[in-house]
Amino acid sequence: MLGFLRGFSAIWRRELAGIFMGPLAWTLLVIAIALQGLLFLVYLKTSQGDVDLALRFGFGESWAFWALAALFPPLLTMRMISEESRLGLLEYLLTAPVSDASVVLGKFAAATSFMALVWSSGLLHALLVQAAGVAPDWGAVWGGWIGAVLVSGLFCATGLLCSALTNTPVVAAFGAIVLHIVIVILPLLSSLTEARWIQEAIARVDVLDHHKATFLVGVLDSAYLGFFVVWTALFLYAATRSLEARRWR
C-alpha cells in the first residue's frame, strides 16, 4: 500500500509539473478564467444582481460550464498515455517500480487538480462579490466547486480511458469529447421520448442532474457523491486494464 501511494504521489507530481511546464495548460487557464469572468458579469446582469444564482450559473447551471467541462479534460489527458506510448516513454514508466493503477491514478489526479484550479475562478468571483458588500451563500459556493471538481474528475477518467485506447492524442481527445457531448446531451434525449423506462434509465446516469440537484445547491449527499466516485472508478479501472493490455501487445 505504501509503495502504491509512493508511486501515485511521484506520478502525480511528475504529471502536474508536466502540465504546468507546457504552454497548453496556461493557455487553457487564461481562456477559462477570462471567459468565466466575463460570463459571471453576464449572469449577474441577467439575474438582476442575484449573487447566488450567478455563482450557480458559473458552477454548473449554464451551458458554458458544461462546454468547458467537456472540452478541457480531453485536451489535458489526450497526451498523458497515448503520446507517451507513441514516443516510447510509456515503456520506461511501465518498467519502473510503480503499478499500472498508480500510473493511471497519478495522471488522473494531476488532470483533476488542474481542473480544480480552473473552477477556482468561481471562488474568486464569490470573494469579489463579498468584497462588493454582498456575502454569497458560501455553503452553496463550496458545494458547487466540489461538484464541478467531481464532474471534471469523471471526464478526466473518460479522457484517460480514451488516451489509453489509442496511440494518437488527437483521436483520444476527439473520442473523449464525443463521449462527453453524449453524456451532456443525454438528458435532452430523454425529453424526446415518452417511454418511461428510457427516461428512468437515463435519469440513473444523468450527470447533469446529479450535479445540479445536490452539489450546486450546497448539499453533500453520499449517494450522489457515490455516483461520481463509482463511475469515475469504473472508467479508471477500464483505463488501467487497457494500459495493462499494452504489455501483452
Binding site: W142, G218, D221, S222, A223, V230
Partner: peptide, 15 residues
C-alpha cells in the same frame, strides 16, 4: 448507495 441505511446528507447552505 441510495438506500437510506447507507445514505448521509449534509446541507451546507446558509439558511
Amino acid at each position: 448507495l441510495e438506500t437510506r441505511l447507507l445514505r448521509a446528507r449534509f446541507d451546507l447552505s446558509q439558511d
